[in-house]
Design a protein around this nucleic acid. Structure first.
Length: 276
DNA sequence: CACTCTACCTGTGCGC
DNA sequence: TGCGCACAGGTAGAGT
């Protein structure tokens, strides 16, 4: 499931190639399932993207933001935004490669390439907007670049259980269920801990853990979960390790539900304290 | 404001 | 072997 580190790696591979997406012209859009388009219909989408050029790629949380420059309309800039949700994939292929079972959109590019969007579960979405804010205005700062002052003051403003708060994209953007569990484990904080019960030291460790876990996962090109082993991938300590022993203290990893989400933690390393 | 629940989807993996 | 079912999770939106 793509969270910030996986999305960042999609960005890097599309931006840097080979082959690189930047500079490619869209000749035509093949919309195989139009439900993927959010806020624009097939015809408008087709007309807008046709003959535009990918000029830049950025990211905010789990949203990929592609800057497109129109050739026919005086180089007007607009934005193609993609959210992969749980099962979306975005990748470049030789244009002649046949679409696969779950391909929802294929953008036919110059240089005999195609940008494919595959998504078995149809949760992913694509927007076409004049300004990224139209999609991303509700997001908090990006989790990889947020500063500790923001986290500290934002924590002080809210009274909530820490795990649902980490998943709240309006607080910080980019953390999903897997990395929320990993971040809390490394910080030694129980997922049900209330923000009010966090000491200054807890908050510091939480911030360091968030930056540490996410940047390591970015460098490792994503996490190793669902039994799929990828060489050099980020190794999880708690997510999906229910009943296995903690790498630090040997206690069995416990699974509970927090806000309807499967939540994994070590009862010894992450004790629940009511006061700082 | 905090929270809970539901809907959106489909592949997987379990128990029977 | 096959069937039914719970489960996985990011987000929006409605309800408590």
């Amino acid at each position: 499931m793509p969270e910030l580190p996986e999305v960042e790696n999609v960005l890097r591979s599309l931006r840097d190639g080979p082959p690189a997406l930047t500079g490619q012209v869209i000749h035509r859009a093949l919309i195989i399932w139009s439900g993927v388009l959010s806020g624009s219909n097939e015809d408008i989408f087709q007309a807008m993207v046709q003959n535009s050029t990918f000029s830049a790629i950025s990211r905010h949380g789990k949203y990929l933001i592609f800057t497109l420059s129109s050739i026919n309309q005086c180089r007007k800039e607009f934005f193609l935004i993609v959210h992969l949700r749980m099962t979306g994939r975005l990748y470049l292929v030789p244009r002649e490669n046949a679409v696969v079972r779950h391909t929802r959109v294929s953008l036919l590019l110059g240089d005999d390439l195609a940008l494919r969007f595959d998504d078995p579960r149809k949760f992913g979405r694509i927007w076409l907007v004049n300004h990224p804010d139209e999609v991303t205005c509700g997001l908090g700062p990006d989790a990889l670049t947020v500063d500790s002052d923001y986290v500290e003051s934002a924590l002080a403003e809210r009274r909530r259980q820490i795990k649902p708060l980490l998943l709240d994209q309006s607080f910080i953007a980019g953390i999903g269920n897997i990395y929320a569990d990993e971040i809390l484990f490394r910080a030694g904080i129980h997922p049900l801990a209330s923000t009010e019960a966090l000491s200054d030291n807890d908050k510091e460790r939480l911030y360091d853990s968030m930056i540490g876990v996410l940047s390591e996962a970015v460098d490792a090109r994503g996490a190793n979960v669902d039994g799929v082993f990828k060489e050099g991938a980020f190794v999880v300590d708690v997510y999906g390790r229910t009943g296995e022993s903690c790498r630090v203290c040997d206690t069995a990893i416990t699974k509970i539900r927090v806000g309807q989400r499967g939540t994994h933690y070590c009862p010894t390393c992450q004790p629940l304290r009511s006061r700082p």
